[in-house]
Design a protein around this nucleic acid. Sequence first.
DNA 1: TTGAAAGCGTTACCAG
DNA 2: CTGGTAACGCTTTCAA
Lengths: 344, 344
Amino acid sequence: MSRMPAPKATPPRMSDVARLAGVSKMTVSRVMAGRSASEATRERVRRAIEELGYVADAAAGALSSGRTSFVAVLVPSLSSSNFSDTVSGLTAVLEPQGLELLIGDTDYLPDREERLVRQMLRHQPRCIALTGAQHTDATRTLLQRSGVPVVEMWDLPAEPIDMAVGFSNVSAAREMVRYLADKGYRRIGFLGGASELDRRGLDRLKGYQLEMKALGLDKHRVVRLGESPVTMSHGAPAMAELLERWPDTQAVMCVSDMSAFGAIMECQRRGLRVPDDIAIAGFGNFEIAACCHPTITTVSVDAYGIGQRTGEAIVAALAAADGERATHPAKTRIDYTVVPRESA
Amino acid sequence: MSRMPAPKATPPRMSDVARLAGVSKMTVSRVMAGRSASEATRERVRRAIEELGYVADAAAGALSSGRTSFVAVLVPSLSSSNFSDTVSGLTAVLEPQGLELLIGDTDYLPDREERLVRQMLRHQPRCIALTGAQHTDATRTLLQRSGVPVVEMWDLPAEPIDMAVGFSNVSAAREMVRYLADKGYRRIGFLGGASELDRRGLDRLKGYQLEMKALGLDKHRVVRLGESPVTMSHGAPAMAELLERWPDTQAVMCVSDMSAFGAIMECQRRGLRVPDDIAIAGFGNFEIAACCHPTITTVSVDAYGIGQRTGEAIVAALAAADGERATHPAKTRIDYTVVPRESA
DNA sequence: TTGAAAGCGTTACCAG
DNA sequence: CTGGTAACGCTTTCAA
């Protein structure tokens, strides 16, 4: 098989299509945009497009019309299933609107977020969706000046930059503590909240501490271990350390189902029965929580739904920018629920 | 907190920066590109940019220079950790080159891939990375005509469109069969390969069948269940069916660690010990395979490495396009290895 | 329903 | 080292 001599010449332009169809560029443009044109013309143009394999240049269109079809999304980690689910939810809502996602992975690093925001801004996105409410000052200034609508996801900051779609990680964690306390557990530990960069993890830790205190229980059985994103392998050593320091612990709450899974594995290795000898709870309702043995008691958060609602907020914001007096609430609260399973 | 009256006026342009710095647009352009300019001028321009919060318009730059900094990547599923790892590997190599990823999720649907390819082509990407070698005719034509270099990942087709970075899923599966046979297992089953759209899954099934036949063993203990992406929940019912139909099975090979995990859970539920009563092997070396109990014997594939090598292939292709006579092999073979663990 | 001309904001190219 | 001018490929706007 010989490599083709590259038919690269130069890709066809709209003017080429126009010439072949015997019409003006404008008519081609109109046909492509689905605007008024006689059926006959339309057909001729379509045929010319097909024959030449014409693909319109988005940059030229954007420059000329002054608007792109980009929506920027920044998540801390694409490999966390909850964030990729959020991206799926966003896609589901935005794609039918003809919007395209510009996806970025901040790796939980505020500086990286700043770099990415600057980079995406160069593409004139119609809207930007960020994860969390923690941003560098430069990022805030950048966003402010750009005038691009911003949605913050996965949290409910007191003062969103613009809009927010999420829930209180503090409250969610408190609810889990109450669930465990209701079950009769008193000596409850916490695994996670290690990274200062993962605000949501820290908030869950804070929720644990606040509620334990409110219940008059000891809130110091905390092992902060492992960087975000939280993976399964973090759970085992953290659990080991916790058992080392507080052997009489009755229940352990983990910052994520991932670490809860690792913790359970560690218990099995030590011959501890879950939940008979020690109860373990997770957070996030990842697939594994329902599949492993014992199944993991967790807090279920609709990650895909966060994406959908964010998508809706974006669509509303764009409509509003188009002058249509649409009002979208600045904050959209997402439900979460404690899901009782076998492990706690 | 009152909403700002939108300082949207109109974002600053390069000409605004030029005026404020007292130089021409061209000088601003040069400074931004890091090209020759006296230190004094450079500093004045930088200050003006800073003061105005100027962000260059990528579309205008692309139109003018005739080149973007986009690289398009299409994966079947962003929520599969192996593909998001590949994306990470790509990012690691391409970002330092000033290239930006345009990420798309085909959902294992060839038609969707075609739509996405067309959409990405509108943005004039410098290169396109696809997953697998199965594409619609229209997709191939589209790519061919565009003249954009293409890298196919995760497979090694006989005739790549342009370049390929991957491995033979057939061979990898055969190797796992040999491993199991060497361990003394004879009645070996296979779980997966259900979706006609997941070529890699089908290839693993084919590898199983070929090698079983080569070894003179019965290759019919196959349960094809569950659509791609393969999730944990697919494993349990598939395992149940297999045990129902062939109760004397000694070992089971799964199309993915995800289904292997589900299968193991099903065994535990039935009181079957793994591997004493039945051995189970996975594919992919996902994190769970090393963390669960028993740990899962699997085929390790360097997903991140596929991304890196693809990134390198892309960089080479771009250099070649720039006239630099760089030669990059059309096919890059990625290693895989059977990882013996507890489950088989 | 269709067409011609005028830009959109940047960079390439050539002068100075 | 710096500046003017002419594109880049499309859509807007205005006429016909």
